[in-house]
Deep mutational scan, measured.
Amino acid sequence: MEVRTIKVFTTVDNINLHTQVVDMSMTYGQQFGPTYLDGADVTKIKPHNSHEGKTFYVLPNDDTLRVEAFEYYHTTDPSFLGRYMSALNHTKKWKYPQVNGLTSIKWADNNCYLATALLTLQQIELKFNPPALQDAYYRARAGEAANFCALILAYCNKTVGELGDVRETMSYLFQHANLDSCKRVLNVVCKTCGQQQTTLKGVEAVMYMGTLSYEQFKKGVQIPCTCGKQATKYLVQQESPFVMMSAPPAQYELKHGTFTCASEYTGNYQCGHYKHITSKETLYCIDGALLTKSSEYKGPITDVFYKENSYTTTIK
């Protein structure tokens, strides 16, 4: 009895394709271990004539594949690729409408935090270190965002349907971005203890939790000093293409032309909904596939993004 075979390709990165001759009487799992086709788990399936010449994702289970996976995804987590594939199996079914010149995501599976993050990423200057993220990001900007969303979920250790947080998501993504040249110098002034300067680099240099107003941050924000008295913390120097200011959701007025974009969060910790506000020729609110415009805006804002380049204080 002759062994019926077909020729397929296996890959971990969709760049390096490895030619395989597979036995049609055995499952993919018996031949390769966990195997995925377009995100779908085909591990328990036997090869079919229609699979001839198709590319299958496999887990990096030998040295060659491990090197290829690390170079593309910059992670050695053995569960990463499987999590990416199972997320992709959902995100490829989502709709990605162009809204006001940006790629958004039609609401499904509690994905409003991903839509808000995706919209924000198209408006701030950011370059990702893992080629996987950078490639998928370019495709997302062009309207094909399924891979990018699935990668975000995998890097953030999230599953489809789980509630997510924009600030946490951005923080994970910033860790995989090139923020080497970003720098922030802060000064804390206390009447009792004097003053202390701190220099922050990388992710810490672009994120701040405690106030939404970048102007206020430049002037000074009140913080408790270690001595128990009130101290003032203010920005001395900022070198970065953008800054992200966050605070627990509270009524906040966004003035046209003073910011790049913002995240609105309605609801409580267990259950809520994100919308995205962007400042173009007027203010726009993007909620999944829905767009509304207004000249002014007041609502429960939790993150505001500002364009920056270089700032030095005039406070002496």
Rank of each mutant, 00 (worst) to 15 (best):
T232K: 08
I277N: 00
Y138W: 15
T199R: 08
F259P: 02
S104I: 04
G53S: 11
R83I: 06
C285N: 07
P300C: 15
Q195R: 10
L114Q: 04
K219I: 11
G257K: 03
Y28A: 05
V160G: 04
Y214D: 02
Q175V: 04
F305A: 00
E204T: 06
P241F: 02
L283W: 03
A87C: 09
H48W: 15
M170S: 07
D41K: 07
T198L: 14
A117L: 06
K201D: 07
S171E: 08
F56T: 05
Q238G: 03
K280I: 09
E52W: 11
Y208K: 01
Y306G: 01
L151W: 02
L121N: 03
F217T: 06
L235A: 01
I15T: 12
Q251I: 14
V21Q: 11
A262H: 00
Q134L: 06
V67K: 10
G101S: 05
V236S: 05
C271A: 11
Y73G: 04
R66N: 11
T313I: 14
V3E: 15
T199V: 11
V166H: 07
T43W: 06
M207Y: 07
Y113W: 08
G194R: 02
H18T: 08
V188S: 07
Y36M: 00
T260Y: 07
G143P: 03
Y137G: 02
M26K: 13
A231N: 01
M207H: 07
S279Y: 01
T35G: 06
L151A: 03
T198Y: 14
P47D: 03
T292G: 09
P47M: 04
A69F: 12
A145P: 10
L179W: 07
V206H: 02
Y172G: 10
L114N: 06
A136F: 07
G288P: 02
H176G: 02
S279C: 08
N129D: 09
Y138G: 14
A115H: 02
G228E: 03
E68T: 06
P130K: 03
L118N: 04
N157K: 13
G143H: 05
D63P: 08
E308N: 09
K307I: 10
A132L: 03
T91H: 05
R139A: 13
T116Y: 00
S295C: 10
L119S: 05
I105Q: 02
T292E: 12
M244T: 00
R4A: 13
N100E: 14
R184C: 03
M85A: 06
E204V: 06
I277Y: 02
P78C: 10
G53M: 14
L153Y: 15
A140L: 13
A250G: 13
L291M: 11
D77L: 05
L173A: 02
G272P: 02
A115P: 05
H48K: 15
G228M: 01
L118C: 02
S295W: 10
P97H: 12
S279K: 02
T232P: 01
T43N: 08
T10F: 10
C271E: 09
D41Y: 07
L254P: 01
A177E: 01
E296W: 12
C271I: 12
L81P: 08
S279G: 09
L163W: 08
Q134P: 04
L153M: 08
L153N: 05
V206I: 11
D180S: 11
T302G: 04
R167N: 05
D165H: 01
Q98N: 11
K275C: 10
A108R: 07
L173Y: 03
T11K: 07
H273N: 02
G267W: 10
H48V: 13
E68W: 10
F259S: 01
G53C: 11
R139V: 07
A40D: 15
A177K: 00
Y172S: 13
D23G: 11
E296P: 12
A146M: 07
L186I: 13
Y137T: 03
E253Q: 10
V12W: 08
A108H: 05
G161N: 10
L283R: 00
K233Q: 14
E52A: 14
S181W: 12
Q20L: 08
K158I: 06
K92I: 11
T11I: 10
C261P: 00
L173K: 02
V189M: 09
T282W: 07
L163E: 13
T27V: 13
K275E: 01
W94K: 05
L119I: 05
V166C: 07
D77Q: 08
T10W: 08
K127H: 10
L114P: 06
V12C: 10
T192H: 11
E71N: 09
Y234Q: 08
A250K: 11
N268S: 14
Y214F: 10
P34Y: 10
G257F: 01
E204I: 00
Y306E: 02
R141L: 10
L102A: 06
G33C: 05
L121F: 07
K275G: 02
V243S: 02
Q134R: 13
S263T: 12
Q20H: 14
F242Q: 02
Y72T: 07
S240Q: 01
L133A: 03
I124H: 02
Y172A: 11
Y138V: 14
Y72F: 09
K191W: 07
P130Q: 03
D165S: 15
S181V: 07
K307E: 09
K293Q: 14
T91Q: 03
Y113F: 07
L65W: 07
H256R: 12
S50R: 11
D63T: 08
L59H: 15
P78A: 10
T159W: 09
F70N: 07
M209C: 15
R66S: 11
V3L: 13
K183Y: 14
L151Q: 02
F242N: 02
A69Y: 11
R66Q: 13
V12K: 07
K93E: 11
S213G: 02
K7R: 13
E168I: 06
T199H: 11
T198R: 13
H51Y: 05
N111M: 02
H276I: 06
L37T: 09
I6T: 11
K219Q: 12
T116A: 11
L212F: 01
T11A: 06
V21G: 11
N268D: 14
T43K: 10
L121V: 14
P78Q: 09
C271N: 05
T314V: 12
Y84P: 01
T35D: 08
T302D: 00
L200S: 10
D109C: 05
L17Q: 14
L121K: 04
V42A: 10
T199N: 06
K127N: 12
H48P: 12
I124E: 04
L121W: 06
N309G: 11
G272V: 03
I277T: 01
M85W: 09
Q270W: 04
A142S: 13
H256I: 15
H256T: 12
S310N: 14
I301W: 00
G210K: 01
R139I: 08
E168Y: 07
A87V: 05
P60V: 04
V21L: 14
C227E: 00
Y208G: 09
T199A: 08
V243A: 01
G82S: 15
L17M: 12
Y311S: 08
G33A: 05
S246D: 01
L81W: 08
L126K: 03
E168G: 09
E308K: 04
V21E: 14
A231I: 03
F217S: 04
C227V: 01
Q237N: 09
G29F: 08
F128H: 02
M24G: 13
A115C: 14
G220T: 03
G143Q: 03
N16I: 08
Q20E: 10
Y138L: 14
E2V: 10
D303R: 00
T91F: 04
F70V: 10
V203D: 05
K233A: 13
P60E: 07
F70E: 11
F259C: 00
L59V: 14
T64P: 09
H256V: 14
F80G: 05
K255G: 07
D109M: 05
K293H: 14
Y73D: 05
V166M: 09
T169E: 05
T312E: 09
V160I: 09
K219A: 12
A140G: 04
Y96P: 05
K219E: 09
Y73W: 03
Y311P: 14
S50D: 13
Q230H: 07
Y57I: 10
A136H: 11
C227T: 02
T35M: 11
C285W: 00
M26V: 12
F9M: 13
D303K: 00
V8H: 04
L88I: 04
I286Y: 09
F305T: 04
N187M: 15
D41L: 10
Q197R: 11
W94A: 03
C149A: 09
